[in-house]
Design a protein around this nucleic acid. Sequence first.
DNA 1: CTGAAAGCGCTTACAG
DNA 2: CTGAAAGCGCTTACAG
Lengths: 341, 341
Amino acid sequence: MKAITITDVARRAGVSPKTVSRVINGEAHVRAEIREAVTRVVAEMNYRPNAFARGLSSSRSFLIGLFFDDPASGYAASIQRGALERARALGRHLVIEPVSFDRSDWRRLLEDTVQGLRLDGAILTSPICDRIDLIETFEQHDVPVVRIAPGAALDRTPQVRMDDRAAARTMTEHLLSLGHRDIAFVLGNPQHSATERRWLGFQDAMTAAGLTPDSRRVIQGDFKFRSGLEAADVLFGADPHPTAVFASNDEMALGVLVAAMRNQIAVPRSVSIVGFDDVEIARMAWPQLTTIRQPNFEMGAAAIDLLIDRRNPARAAADDTCRELPYELIVRSTCMPPSLP
Amino acid sequence: MKAITITDVARRAGVSPKTVSRVINGEAHVRAEIREAVTRVVAEMNYRPNAFARGLSSSRSFLIGLFFDDPASGYAASIQRGALERARALGRHLVIEPVSFDRSDWRRLLEDTVQGLRLDGAILTSPICDRIDLIETFEQHDVPVVRIAPGAALDRTPQVRMDDRAAARTMTEHLLSLGHRDIAFVLGNPQHSATERRWLGFQDAMTAAGLTPDSRRVIQGDFKFRSGLEAADVLFGADPHPTAVFASNDEMALGVLVAAMRNQIAVPRSVSIVGFDDVEIARMAWPQLTTIRQPNFEMGAAAIDLLIDRRNPARAAADDTCRELPYELIVRSTCMPPSLP
DNA sequence: CTGAAAGCGCTTACAG
DNA sequence: CTGAAAGCGCTTACAG
């Protein structure tokens, strides 16, 4: 099937290619009458501009890169879905790119993409969004960057974030309000900046309640299921064990939950367990996990908006460089007041 | 940073742009000496071809589209990861595209992508891979298609598959070998062709053992957690309940598992439960789920290989149009012999 | 408000 | 084995 070009459309509409171009791109200065005629012909002929010709002559590619450390994680999937939906609604395509700093040639691979594809923008997720050398590579190639939940160099790029610290405080307050005092905390992967923010939020609430976290009740994890399992083995090996465990993401919380079942510790009767993220599996556990909903889908979509605003001088002027999205406490079935000793 | 072009490289190397083009694309008919010189200059100048200029003048885009019904599912994520890794290794980029038949303008959106981006190839996953109108759209635009686990029109495109039927038979035989005779089956989403294949495999094994599945032990599900939960409520409401439940994917198996816990039915002591897929959460359940490993990562990678082979006349001739990948029975902790009545 | 000319950076088709 | 010319289908920069 021979493709239809802008010249074909122009001829049929009785105007110049440039005029068709103006109409397609929604530029001003076209008589309403002509605009309509062209629009009609475009529809009739089922014309679509060739993205490569466009990309070559302008400096726009209509391509946005979404960069992940681990594109297979549930976290990545939900951000991707939000970005995807919004990008398509705005006529952009999403190119997914993994970045593995483990590989010595990561920079070469990245430059292949950035330079070869002339990306219109890049979205960086945690934890790679905190690598300054990565950000610099994009800057060198004049690719606008938006970061999701960064922890470092916050003034360097526009960003989409959530108040992890306040959310962790809210969750801890929920546990405190139930009457818990002996609350354990499982830290996340130190590479992710959210790990520290959640830890600080936990401390905020404990301190406000006049409590000091016991160091034996704070265990290092890495956001993976297995680390939750192992942390719980330590926590439940103590006598008495804590009355509540706050794991700083859902996957680890599930590990704690499984460890409790293995050790015949009833949840929530003997121990309350909470997570953070509200990934799909939080609802597939039994009991269903009390957690914090993180608006990943919305963050992905907002990142696209911010990127496209940047390219629009009128809107970029609005100085809309940081979008903070709300979290939500999701109370399900893994908590109750502590049983009396 | 002003981009370096093929002309810059040609000048510095003292050859014509066409020669540089030959070297970059690995074409024959270049003196080894010149090839080396050009290669050196390319590296020195850190030159990368502009994908848009390439795409415009040739008919290749180096872009492969990965089409999903639901890009956020765990199934999609693992296929995506395999395809991504392989595509990058071969110098291709992956564009992720959702297809929603719910939307009346799905065809227009699809044509925007196919025509605008001049995809080098498309990978279609279940269940959309069985929509003939979708396949036709790609054919009209001369975009090679590879399908993953299709169920219809099997001779129409190259494909990557797994023997779902044999796998379901193997799983059922495992249950039979443990001594189970009263085995319930939870069917998947009828839109997915794998649903029927798994059901047939179950029947194969039952029939071979001289057993006829009782219709009250066969429940319709849809591959979602909730449907497993609901199916189990029916199964466990019966007296006696089956001694084993084969849910045709892991998510539903988890629903069955949670229902068992809710109803105080011990797993595996009172009931054995098995799934299918070996998604990540199969290991996060308690007890850990016995299941069939489906090689999603490998299927994604194989789809890319098949697509690229198609474009290479020498290799396309090999008639490599169907790649079947092996499954594996993963025995974990949700099964044991039935307890005596 | 509209258009003619030039150019983006490659590859194709051809010639030698 | 190597290269000069033309062209891919748009947009930019300019003119009117």
